[in-house]
Simulated assay, not measured.
Amino acid sequence: MYDEQETISIEKSLRYIASHVRVNGREILKHHDISPLQFVALQWVGDKDGITIGELANRMYLAHSTTTDIVDKLESGNYVKRNRSEKDKRLVLVSMEDKGKEIIQQVIDKRIDYIAKITAHLSEAEREVLPGALEHVLKESERISYE
């Protein structure tokens, strides 16, 4: 177990790294008609193809009306589309269009390139342990989050 100062340091490092990776990847958005908030919504739609506006609003911690506006803009830009659920015709589901998939892939590619650059100077031992350690921390965070 880490002491308090080590835990504070880890939290700060994770927060800053996540922010730097996110900002670097979002440079791609400057070449498209999509805002960072719209991109977050697009990511959620990509993670669960066939998401309702209500689910999306909950995941983004936004009002239903605000989320509807975001989806309207994404749909008008051909990033997403709305469809009636096959199982329950009352539900309208938001799903990804090819244009949405393409922009997400561009951002991910930029993030991967950035991560390769910031980890290039790690020692061989550090490079070997980092992916496994991060995967373990991620799994534990998911386990604790969903208990």
Rank of each mutant, 00 (worst) to 15 (best):
S35I: 06
H136F: 05
H121K: 12
I17K: 04
F39E: 04
S95H: 06
S19F: 13
S35M: 06
G54P: 00
R82K: 13
D49K: 07
E4R: 08
P36I: 06
A120K: 14
H20C: 08
S13M: 15
K99L: 05
A116C: 07
G50K: 02
A63Q: 12
M96T: 07
D98M: 11
L29Y: 01
Y114R: 07
H121G: 07
I118W: 02
K81T: 12
R26M: 14
S65A: 11
A41I: 04
R84K: 15
Y114T: 08
E140T: 02
H121M: 09
D98Q: 14
V107I: 08
S85E: 10
L74N: 06
N83I: 15
S123N: 09
D113A: 13
S9A: 13
N24V: 10
I51V: 14
G50N: 06
I28M: 08
Q5F: 05
M96L: 15
T66S: 09
L37E: 13
Y16G: 10
I112P: 03
I53V: 14
S9E: 09
S85M: 09
E6N: 05
L134F: 03
I118P: 01
E140V: 03
H121Y: 13
S9Q: 11
H31K: 12
K99N: 06
I8F: 11
E27M: 06
L130S: 00
L122V: 02
V137R: 01
S65C: 00
E97R: 14
E11R: 12
D3L: 01
L56V: 02
Y146S: 12
D3Y: 06
E142T: 02
H20T: 10
V94C: 01
I112W: 05
I10Q: 09
V40Q: 15
A125P: 00
S65D: 11
Q38R: 15
L74S: 04
R90K: 10
M1R: 07
A18Y: 13
H121D: 14
S145A: 13
K73H: 09
L91M: 08
N83G: 05
L37Q: 11
S95N: 10
S13K: 12
V40K: 15
I51F: 03
I118M: 10
V40I: 13
E4V: 07
G100Y: 06
K73S: 11
T66R: 05
Y79T: 08
I34F: 03
Q106I: 07
A63C: 03
S145I: 00
G50Q: 01
E135D: 11
R90A: 06
Q38C: 01
K12Y: 15
Q105W: 03
I34R: 02
S95F: 00
Q5L: 09
L93K: 01
K110A: 11
L56K: 03
T68I: 00
